[in-house]
């Protein structure tokens, strides 16, 4: 069985994601695939993505992958990266198109570049480089990553979530924006863990070890309302994966 499937829909640099996962999980079977059946059979799914969201969704549909991605998001450890985060939401300003609608909220462009940053410099878009990530939720995927650690970003759009409970981290450019979300078996980030050195590799290692409650014995099942309400816990018996704290929201005060 495939342990980790990386969804290949013809956009962006998938090699970086697979190389980083191979580095943190050398024993795992990791495939880059555009085959919906392989996605359905995989233990974990990663949806990367670069470029423009309208193109990404079009390519996803052209390969018949939408259904398999929706199923993965509904029932197995799921990691979205960059556009893989943005496409989870209801709507994007980029092309003014609907997203997958898994999470409530929309995707917006950074304000007019004529705006200046805190030092009076012209605000550059894309937001490109290493920015601090303030964790606003205790979550297994943050284990071992210091607060305000820097991750590598490159994007012109950001998510504005309607459900603050799912915000897992914020960054500032220059205003605070959501850069990570978590709900049940879904964890999705705006930055690129595969390009974020130690902090990024730690996050990927945590993902490989992560077993949310709704996921058991490698089998996919639909989330019940009860599952959805419960906290994530760790089921993996791998000794390298130690236990994680329960998730609690501390979003409210993070950027007060």
């Amino acid at each position: 069985m495939t342990d980790i499937a990386i969804v290949d829909y013809g956009m962006g640099n998938l090699r970086s994601v697979s190389k980083a996962l191979e580095h943190v999980a050398p024993q795992a079977s990791i495939v880059v695939t555009s085959d919906p059946d392989i996605l359905r059979g995989a233990g974990r799914v990663v949806v990367p993505g670069q470029g423009a969201m309208p193109d990404c969704l079009r390519e996803l549909d052209a390969r018949g992958l939408r259904g398999a991605v929706l199923e993965a998001a509904a029932g197995k450890p799921f990691l979205g990266i960059c556009i893989g985060l943005q496409m989870l939401f209801e709507r994007s300003e980029e092309g003014d198109i609907p997203g997958l609608g898994i999470l409530p909220g929309r995707v917006r462009r950074f304000a007019a570049p004529a705006k200046t940053d805190a030092d009076g410099y012209r605000l550059k878009v894309p937001h490109m480089g290493w920015n601090q990530v303030r964790q606003t939720l205790d979550h297994p995927l943050w284990q071992g990553i210091p607060g305000d650690a820097r991750f590598y970003f490159v994007h012109s759009y950001y998510v504005e979530t309607a459900d603050t409970e799912s915000v897992a981290a914020c960054s500032a450019y220059p205003l605070a924006f959501t850069c990570a979300v978590a709900r049940d078996n879904i964890f999705a980030v705006q930055f690129h863990p595969e390009k974020s050195h130690e902090a990024g590799l730690t996050l990927l290692r945590n993902f490989v070890c992560w077993a949310p409650r709704s996921y058991t014995n490698g089998r996919i099942r639909n989330l019940s309302a009860q599952d959805a309400a419960s906290d994530s816990i760790l089921l993996n018996s791998d000794p390298t994966c130690s236990s994680f704290p329960q998730s609690t929201s501390k979003m409210a005060s993070a950027y007060a």
Binding site: D117, A118, H127, N131, R134, R150, F153, A172, Y173
Partner: peptide, 8 residues
Amino acid sequence: MGLAKRII
């Protein structure tokens, strides 16, 4: 807190 200048 913000974006770092890069050394390449």
